[in-house]
Design a protein around this nucleic acid. Sequence first.
DNA 1: CAGTATCAGTTGAGTGTTCAACCAAACCGA
DNA 2: TCGGTTTGGTTGAACACTCAACTGATACTG
Lengths: 162, 162
Amino acid sequence: MTDPAWLDEEEQETWRAFLWTSRLLNEALDRQLQRDSGLPHAYYMILAMLSESPGRALTMTELAAIVHSSPSRLSHAVNRLEEAGWVRRVKHPDDRRTTIAELTDAGFAVLAEAAPGHVAEVRRHLFDPLSREEMLRFRETLHALLASLDPDREAPCADGKG
Amino acid sequence: MTDPAWLDEEEQETWRAFLWTSRLLNEALDRQLQRDSGLPHAYYMILAMLSESPGRALTMTELAAIVHSSPSRLSHAVNRLEEAGWVRRVKHPDDRRTTIAELTDAGFAVLAEAAPGHVAEVRRHLFDPLSREEMLRFRETLHALLASLDPDREAPCADGKG
DNA sequence: CAGTATCAGTTGAGTGTTCAACCAAACCGA
DNA sequence: TCGGTTTGGTTGAACACTCAACTGATACTG
């Protein structure tokens, strides 16, 4: 039996491989986006998710759920994006608590300019090294982990800009 | 043929699943470590890697390579760890450029206290949801990605304290 | 309806990370 | 041995994230 309080060598290696892979991938993407568009990855994601939504707008709470961000983080981020003129805050007409974040035309333009390079980077690092079959198995494994990490979550939205 | 400038739906979903999984896992571990030991995950890793090294000491450059950190980040981190009394900086006797980071007894004690809870969290989130076979396939995929992300790197060290 | 709880979102302080600039020691070539 | 380069490492400013505290608006409950 394996000692539940420790990791055996294969687990150990798997764990570190996962850690380094996710770190390196995130850093590569962050660097690419920062260099080519001056956007951190988290900010790019906010613009991307807004662009896919009806009216290019979402309430802060919806947006926070979609980009997996804390309310606080999102609020700070939208402050920056608003200063840059890429997002606009609008009050909800029926519920005066909620504020709506809306992608501006300038924001859409920045996103459109950044997207191809970003997608290319994702493809290069994540999909080029994997066969289709391997990719699909990888996806299943990730879904299993997600189900455990985040039991009560809806399926994420989908389209190619991510 | 697939358009190389865009992601199809399966790729899209794989990519986002990877993103959320790594984010959620990292956040879970960071929260657990912060709560139980007051250590960010990156700092825990520094202590852990030092503890596995001969003499519980490494040069800054070696340490940076092992924990996949930039020199700057490591230097700032070691500043904090030194203030806390968990690490000590020593000058290298033969090469006066290099400085050696050495784990103190207090640092080892903190690590020893933090390790079991951390390992349990890793196990809970990463290994419990996966069959052994699935885990091993997962590892192979990660190695393929790593090879592409970081072509000229040595094999990481190993032991159960991850 | 009052009173309380909950929801939506923001703020500020503290902390960690990044990036560019910098310094000193060691190496290298003529 | 002198100048340039590389190596090892640090620093400070700018920026992002976390956590706890807070405000206002709405929903529930007796």
